[in-house]
Nucleic acid binder design. Structure first.
Length: 208
DNA sequence: TGCGTGATATTCT
DNA sequence: GAATATCACGCAG
């Protein structure tokens, strides 16, 4: 297990979104909160392909205060708020000024589960299984206390949020259309979502 | 299965 | 400036 930093980190993130989406599966997302490690293994991601992708916030080259982070260097976090109540965490990849990113959709909780449960609201606080703690982009941000303060910060050598690579081990990737992007016309069916096949922590059971 | 909720982009005056 | 439409979801029921 090694923390991604500096040059190695940059190389890791400086790829296209589809590649990074697959590469992120199985790595560990670590949040340091009041000195406590809270972490989970990434089990579900989606690629957003920038200016050409109708489902992306940067479709057509839109560049605003909100999505500015997507134009930053690879390894930057893009955190935004949606539906009036949910934050979502993305990892910027590609090159500077190329607004492509990967949405982190689900984690398998590994450290700090008690804290995660405390941070989560509603039903997940009590009787629900651990697999419900981080099984969705909004849930991850709640469980890891991620909000827009982290927007624009870098995962490379990050002080409070970073990625760790695990020893390679055989995994089986599943691949499907993205979730919640029905409005994106022909882009809504593109198989740009990846997940750890059979993992109970993924957000929605893949449709065929 | 519906619907809340509020930031943001877009579209007006 | 201000009104409005829209949304990478989660939860109650």
């Amino acid at each position: 297990m090694s923390k991604l930093a500096d040059r190695a980190g940059l190389v890791f993130f400086a790829v296209d979104a589809a590649t990074l989406a697959q590469r992120l599966i199985g790595t560990r997302l670590v949040r340091l909160l009041d000195g406590e490690r809270i972490s989970g293994v990434i089990v579900e991601t989606e690629a957003y392909l920038g200016v050409e992708d109708k489902a992306a916030h940067t479709y057509g080259g839109r560049r605003t205060a909100r999505n500015e982070a997507m134009y930053g260097p690879p390894g930057t976090c893009y955190v935004y708020f949606t539906y009036g109540m949910h934050h979502c965490l993305n990892v910027v990849c590609g090159a500077v000024d190329e607004p492509v990113a990967v949405l982190i959709r689900a984690l398998e909780p590994t450290e700090g589960l008690v804290t995660m449960r405390r941070l989560r609201t509603g039903a997940a606080k009590r009787s629900h299984p651990d697999t419900a703690l981080c099984s969705g982009p909004g849930k991850i941000c709640q469980a890891l206390a991620i909000d827009r303060k982290l927007n624009g910060t870098s995962l490379i050598g990050g002080a409070n949020l970073w990625l760790e690579e695990r020893d390679p081990r055989p995994i089986t990737l599943g691949n499907s259309a993205r979730i919640g992007v029905a409005y994106a016309e022909s882009w809504s069916d593109r198989p740009l979502r990846w997940y750890l096949s059979g993992n109970p922590n993924i957000s929605v059971v893949p449709r065929k």
